[in-house]
Design a binder for these strands. Structure first.
Lengths: 238, 238
DNA sequence: TCTCCTGCTTGCGCTAGCGCAAAGAGCAGC
DNA sequence: GCTGCTCTTTGCGCTAGCGCAAGCAGGAGA
């Protein structure tokens, strides 16, 4: 339960209050592939992940799946801030064996009222998440595919990387990376192959080892010749 | 000041409290093109628009501008939920003559503490905004350009449309529409021309009149042959 | 009325990236 | 070991949409 005190949601709360709140939660265990909640269902619970990792996916009307976000230990997911009775926005799928603390909506909102810091923290978390989502929009709207994939990889290294002989292993399939970057598994595969030739990454089955973060950063920033082969566009000169 | 009571932020507050809070605000008048705050500046204020319309823009490292959101009367913008001292996420530019009520960050946060409903409302607003941003991500990642432009137009009809002989006039330039849909002004112009031939819209200078909402909806949903000329993709059959 | 300016249209060429199909490569279970 | 399954790679063709440039047009101001 020590992890709870470090969760952004509980920052500033006394350990005693943390424990009080945690004691009201129901613990849920998920093995890889299991679903914590499903997009469109009535949002009955709010959860904080205590161990493991989830992906939050959405599926568009034509059946395309995209990954909106990964959730790691200490992070919040579920029906936060939604209007009562509203549906979950995502389907939460465990990427590995995970544990979650789950409160029913009513109980959680009662806690928000009782500990104002909690509500303040929730506001901060949503604001930060909104910032991230808008940044993603900006990137999808303006950046080329290689830049986006490189950026996704860099985020994943920080968020879900495990050290692996000299590099960092990111345990996601080509398809999942594609679903985070807004492209196809084919294109991701091709990019990985190119980057392997440059010594940036080592492709693995359902994973990739990142060796040269610096190099990926250059691609993500668009400084690499790989992403800016022609002439870059200029602003009008006065 | 009657509009304040209808602003989502103040929902559930007594008129008396509304007035109290409003009296602490500084009123600002903006004429078309003026800037209320600028991306990257220290976020000193929180604002509610009382009249007019703003666009919230971001510019990416390579100079591309995108429009993240429009703000209408009663809507909130500025430094909400940010960590103290953090920067504004957008530049707010008036699309027409506008009035805003502005609180300094400290005063606003004090009000949040004093009226818990206020904080609850802010949470709802951010959650809704997050939902919208994620939907936009999904669309940018999965939908084709004509679908996205049609969808932007439909949103604009509701958000910023003025009735105009039989249709609804949306007063944004091709470029601005492009910046909302993640494409170029050329492509938007071409689409408008096509749609004009179908009787869906009437292009105007720095504006467009939408005549057939239904037709645009079909394009946005991808049911129109215009957006799905080839074979649509299928899920694998068992 | 003429001029200028800014925004819009449209033709043209081009390429990034998609989508398919077929072949390879790990991994599990028998 | 062999078999089958799923994930991945890669060649190939194709087209949506970008980017430019040239010309058009609607307002504002002189």
């Amino acid at each position: 339960m020590a992890c709870l005190a470090q969760a952004p949601l509980f920052r500033g709360l006394s350990p005693r209050d943390c424990e009080d709140i945690a004691s009201r939660a129901k613990g849920r265990r998920l093995s890889r592939g299991q679903v914590l909640f499903r997009e469109g269902e009535c949002a009955a619970e709010v959860s904080v992940l205590s161990a493991g990792r989830l992906k939050l996916v959405q599926v568009s009307s034509d059946g395309q799946e995209i990954i909106q976000r990964l959730v790691g230990p200490g992070e919040l997911c579920g029906g936060v801030g939604l209007t009562p009775g509203g549906p979950y926005q995502h389907t939460a799928v465990a990427l590995e064996t995970s544990n979650a603390l789950c409160w029913d909506r009513e109980g959680f909102e009662a806690s928000l009222d009782r500990w104002p810091i909690l509500q303040r923290n929730a506001l901060r978390i949503l604001a930060e998440r909104l910032r991230a989502a808008e940044e993603r929009c900006r990137e999808l709207a303006t950046a080329k595919v290689p830049q986006r994939v490189a950026h996704v990889l860099l985020r994943l290294v920080g968020q879900a990387g495990r050290p692996e002989d000299g590099g960092v292993l990111v345990a996601l399939s080509r398809e999942e990376v594609a679903q985070m970057a807004g492209t196809t598994l084919f294109t991701v595969s091709r990019l990985f192959s190119q980057w392997e030739a440059l010594g940036l990454v080592r492709p693995r089955r359902e994973a990739v080892v990142v060796d040269d973060t610096r190099g990926l950063l250059e691609i993500a920033e668009g400084q690499s010749p790989l992403t800016a082969p022609g002439r870059p566009r200029f602003a009008a000169v006065s």
